Amino acid sequence: MKISNRFTIAVHILSLINVRSDHLTSQQIANSVNINAGYIRQISGLLKKAEFIGIKRGSGGAYLLKAPTSISLYDVYKAVDVVMEGELFHWHEDPNPNCWIGSNIQEILDIFLLKAQQAMEGVLREVSIQEITELIIKKEKASTEA
């Protein structure tokens, strides 16, 4: 199962807002993400609900409410994806209960899949929006210097 693109788009939005000194409209953000402004407003609403951004209606635009160093990728992941613990992986619905593999696979595999989800979430906890932004800036500077 793929994690919804809301996560990567939300990281894009927060990174863009972080590097811009002015407030950004949903259309300006949509131009960077290259996606419909309505979808940007939907994701921005989730980021606002999580209290990461403020939004001034009209031409006011979006701005950060928290320091980018205090917003982890895990925080963003939880704010927009709502993947509950142990639910990252999706099971096929009806394994054969009369088969000794089918009747036991889910219970056994769940142990390892939960560990995998916890490991991924641990990595996301360690990275902030500020770190993402700094890496993007370094990459841009390296590409313009070459």
Score class of each variant (00 low, 15 high):
I132R: 06
L46S: 06
E93N: 09
S15Y: 00
H90D: 03
F52C: 08
T8N: 07
E87V: 02
D22S: 14
D94F: 07
T25V: 04
E107L: 09
D22A: 12
P68D: 02
I132T: 08
A37N: 14
A50T: 06
I101P: 00
P95A: 05
G122E: 11
I105F: 05
V83E: 04
G61Y: 02
A119I: 09
K139L: 12
N5P: 12
K66A: 10
S72A: 04
G45H: 11
E51D: 14
G38R: 15
S128W: 03
G54Y: 04
G58R: 15
F112I: 03
L47Y: 03
Y77T: 00
R6A: 15
S59V: 11
Q117V: 06
Q130H: 11
S103T: 06
S72R: 00
E145M: 14
K78C: 15
Q118H: 14
S70Q: 15
I137L: 10
N98T: 04
K141N: 12
M120K: 13
H23N: 06
T69I: 00
E87F: 09
N98E: 11
H90P: 01
A62E: 05
N18M: 11
I43F: 05
S103D: 06
K48M: 13
S26P: 03
D110W: 03
S21P: 00
E134A: 06
S44K: 02
A116L: 15
R57F: 11
F52L: 11
N98S: 10
G38D: 12
Q130L: 05
H12I: 00
Y39K: 06
E51M: 09
R6F: 15
Q28N: 10
I132N: 04
G45D: 11
K56E: 14
F112N: 09
L124Y: 09
V19T: 13
L14S: 03
N96G: 04
M120P: 04
L135R: 07
K56G: 00
Y74F: 15
L73K: 01
Y39L: 13
K78T: 13
F112A: 12
I17D: 00
E93W: 01
F112Y: 15
P97W: 05
L65Q: 09
R6T: 13
Q42C: 07
A116F: 14
L46Q: 09
G122V: 12
A10D: 03
I53Q: 03
V19C: 06
T69M: 01
S15F: 02
L14V: 03
Q42A: 15
A67M: 00
S128C: 02
I40N: 04
G61I: 06
G58L: 10
P97H: 01
I43E: 04
E131D: 08
I35E: 13
S44H: 02
R41T: 07
I71P: 08
Q106D: 07
E87L: 08
T25Y: 04
L114C: 01
T8H: 06
C99W: 07
L65C: 03
K2Q: 10
A67W: 01
N36D: 15
R41M: 11
I43W: 04
I3L: 13
S103Q: 05
Y39N: 09
L73I: 07
I55A: 08
K48C: 05
R57M: 10
Q130V: 00
S59Q: 12
V83R: 01
Q42T: 14
I29L: 15
K66I: 02
L135I: 02
I55W: 03
M1R: 09
N18A: 14
T8G: 04
V19Q: 13
S59R: 15
Y74G: 00
R125F: 11
I3Y: 12
N36I: 05
